[in-house]
């Protein structure tokens, strides 16, 4: 019988590809009985949706106004001139 360690790994893999029927059944049965793994699975799905819909929230608020430093800006322009 698979434990939470193996089930959580399968749950994670199921986010990437379809599991084999036997594995799907094992996960399904386990999640019915185990609230911890069921919560883990729910959070992974929630997190995927949240991340995909809010890519900008991964940028530090301080970095939302981030800009190229004047030095970097000049360096890039010089590089463009050299290879232009």
């Amino acid at each position: 019988m698979l434990r939470c360690r193996e089930i959580s790994k399968l749950v994670s893999e199921s986010m990437e590809h379809q599991l084999r029927l036997r594995q799907r059944l094992q996960v399904h049965m386990h999640l019915l009985m185990c609230r911890l793994c069921a919560g883990f699975a729910r959070q992974l799905r929630f997190f995927r949706r949240a991340a995909g819909e809010n890519p900008d929230r991964f940028l530090d608020p301080a970095a939302r106004d981030a800009a190229l430093s004047p030095a970097a800006r000049e360096r890039i322009k010089a590089a463009l001139r050299d290879s232009g």
Binding site: R3, R5, L36, C37, Q43
Partner: peptide, 20 residues
């Protein structure tokens, strides 16, 4: 060893993973 720190030797969660 993926389980390192997250699961006990029996393979059960060492912590409650539910944060929501």
């Amino acid at each position: 060893d993926i389980s390192e720190g997250f699961f006990d030797p029996k393979g059960n969660w060492r912590f409650d993973p539910r944060f929501m």
